[in-house]
Amino acid sequence: MKVKTPTPAVLSAAVAILQPYIPELSPHNLIEALKNHNPAEPKEAVKQQPLTRQEVAKLLRISLNTVNRYLNQGKLQRVQLSSHAVRISPESVDTLLNNQK
């Protein structure tokens, strides 16, 4: 991908916004990172493990009661490991997140 060099004002603004999160960032580093970024590279598909109710609650920033309600309503998909152990499909969490936007 060919990167068009941003104007000095845009470059300066971008660096100012990102520096609190990346203190070592400079305009030169940002240009190099943009040039080296290749979104077309295929990423390895990683099979995600089923999530616990607590993990889903933390990820979605909701209560355990809401997680249980979503499970009962079918908004989240149960993965039954045993008669007592329940996990939640990460795909159903992704689907729920994408449908809320």
Score class of each variant (00 low, 15 high):
Met1Phe: 12
Lys2His: 11
Thr7Glu: 12
Ala9Tyr: 01
Ala9Ser: 09
Leu11Met: 09
Ser12Ile: 00
Ala14Glu: 03
Val15Tyr: 00
Val15Cys: 04
Ala16Ile: 00
Ile17Asn: 02
Ile17Glu: 10
Ile17Tyr: 08
Pro20Asp: 11
Tyr21Cys: 05
Ile22Asn: 10
Pro23Lys: 12
Glu24Ile: 05
Leu25Pro: 02
Ser26Thr: 11
Ser26Gln: 09
His28Trp: 08
Glu32Tyr: 05
Ala33Ile: 08
Leu34Lys: 13
Leu34Gly: 15
Leu34Ala: 13
Asn36Thr: 08
Pro39Ala: 07
Ala40Leu: 14
Glu41Asp: 09
Pro42Cys: 04
Ala45Tyr: 12
Lys47Asp: 00
Gln49Ala: 10
Pro50Arg: 07
Leu51Ala: 04
Leu51Pro: 03
Arg53Cys: 02
Gln54Ser: 09
Gln54His: 04
Val56Lys: 03
Val56Gln: 01
Ala57Pro: 00
Lys58Leu: 03
Leu60Gly: 02
Ile62Gln: 03
Asn65Glu: 13
Asn65Met: 06
Asn65Phe: 10
Val67Asp: 05
Asn68Tyr: 06
Asn68Met: 07
Tyr70Ile: 01
Gln73Trp: 07
Gly74His: 06
Leu76Thr: 05
Val79Trp: 03
Val79Asp: 05
Val86Asp: 02
Arg87His: 05
Arg87Leu: 06
Ile88Pro: 03
Ile88His: 04
Ser89Thr: 04
Pro90Cys: 08
Thr95Ala: 09
Leu97His: 08
Asn99Leu: 14
Gln100Trp: 13
Gln100Ile: 11
